[in-house]
Design a protein around this nucleic acid. Structure first.
Lengths: 152, 152
DNA sequence: ATGCATGAGTTCGTCTTCCAAATCCAGCCT
DNA sequence: AGGCTGGATTTGGAAGACGAACTCATGCAT
């Protein structure tokens, strides 16, 4: 069990985790990102999948564009007029491992009875895949062996 | 770039990611968990570190106990009265890799100029550590090689 | 041209949640 | 008794969430 502390080693203002939480740590934002990572791009597709109130959705999409997680582009299908679509940027796509890790946490701790509806495998070996900590050259480090290092 | 889809392969109701978001996907909840993972346990310590309104904090702590992420225990220091403390359960502790992954996302995408204030190393080799996907036996799989598998 | 369909929003009134400050409460101290 | 301390609830006002209806632009059919 982690030892008692009265104060975090990094204040929330300087902490990149806290900053990340301020940027994306909100129910609708996270659900929108989830759908976006599954390939959704259009306003009404997000709306009908998630049931987000349209007014909220429009605001959240705007801030996701402002923070650079989504990019607003125009698409045009033959015979229809041009409409916006919201596609993940590199920054947004970089959240995929985080959200997969959270999915796997949910698989274990929220629904351990049934088999998870989605899982992830290596395209090549077809083995199933989990998130873990690795060194620079890719050797796994068990999480008990992690040590926090503060920059002086 | 991920191909357009009009609908996620798993509906939000069945999705463990969406469920996880419903359980912890809220600003204060995530910030409380961050502090808890750094060892904070006491009401006033959370309150003064995060500035959470006391009324909100008390509600969030209660639901974190209800969902089994924190456990409410009593502690007693000599000469003071017994007080509650909120310690991470195994389920809560299991979120650590997820939040470390999010921290590292923040290091790269929110604050790439300065060096991150905290980093993580392997206790043994002292090498720095990142999150990645690995197979069962711990071989790293690059994220481009991931494939989603739906359970039939 | 007129009318209709479509997708992406906005407007509006209501209702919930958030918030800060003050207050309460229990137990331990002198 | 009286004061202190840390955990928590009460209160009234502010902010944000919500659902329904409406707007707006464009392309298509008549």
């Amino acid at each position: 069990m982690i030892p008692l502390s009265r104060k975090s080693p990094v204040s929330p203002e300087r902490c990149n985790l806290a900053r990340a939480v301020n940027e994306i740590g909100d129910r609708w934002t996270l659900l929108i990102l989830r759908s976006a990572l599954y390939g959704l791009r259009r306003f009404d597709d997000f709306q009908s999948e998630l049931g987000t109130p349209r007014t909220i959705l429009s605001g959240r999409l705007r801030s996701l564009v402002e923070t650079g997680l989504l990019e607003k582009k125009m698409y045009k299908v033959e015979g229809k007029r041009a409409r916006p679509e919201y596609v993940l940027t590199e920054k947004g796509e970089a959240l995929r491992p985080v959200l997969i890790a959270l999915t796997q946490w949910g698989d274990v701790w929220l629904d351990s009875d049934s088999l998870p509806p989605v899982s992830f495998t290596d395209m090549q070996s077809r083995q199933s895949v989990r998130t873990a900590f690795v060194t620079a050259e890719g050797r796994e480090v068990p999480s008990e062996n992690l040590r926090i290092v503060l920059r002086r």
